[in-house]
Computed example of a mutant assay.
Amino acid sequence: MTDPLTRAMLDTAFEPHELLTPPVDILGPATDPDAKEVLHTLGIPSWDNPWFDVDDEIGRRLEPVSEWDYELSDVYQDVPEGAENWVALGMVPYDDIAFDPATGKVYCLPQDAEIYLLNSSLRSFVYFLYLLKVDCPRMDSGDDQSEWAGYTAAEHEEIRLHICEKMSAVDPVALENPKSLWFGILTYIVDPEAHFGRG
Rank of each mutant, 00 (worst) to 15 (best):
T2P: 12
T6I: 11
R7F: 13
L10Y: 00
F14K: 09
E18D: 14
L19E: 01
L20Y: 11
T21H: 11
T21N: 08
P23D: 08
L27M: 09
G28E: 12
P29T: 04
A30P: 01
D34V: 14
V38K: 01
H40P: 00
L42D: 02
L42H: 02
L42F: 09
I44R: 00
I44G: 04
D48H: 14
V54F: 03
V54A: 02
D56G: 13
R61F: 05
W68R: 06
W68G: 01
L72C: 07
S73W: 10
D74P: 08
V79H: 02
E81Y: 09
E81F: 07
G82L: 09
A83M: 08
N85K: 13
M91D: 11
P93W: 08
Y94E: 15
F99M: 05
L109A: 02
L109P: 03
I115H: 01
Y116V: 05
L118T: 02
L122S: 06
S124W: 00
V126A: 05
Y127E: 09
Y127W: 13
L129N: 01
Y130T: 02
K133C: 07
K133I: 03
V134L: 08
S141K: 15
D143H: 12
S146D: 12
E147G: 09
E147Y: 07
A153P: 05
A154V: 10
A154M: 11
E157D: 14
I163Q: 05
S168D: 14
A169G: 06
S180A: 12
W182F: 09
F183C: 09
F183I: 04
G184F: 03
L186I: 07
H195R: 15
G197C: 06
G199N: 11
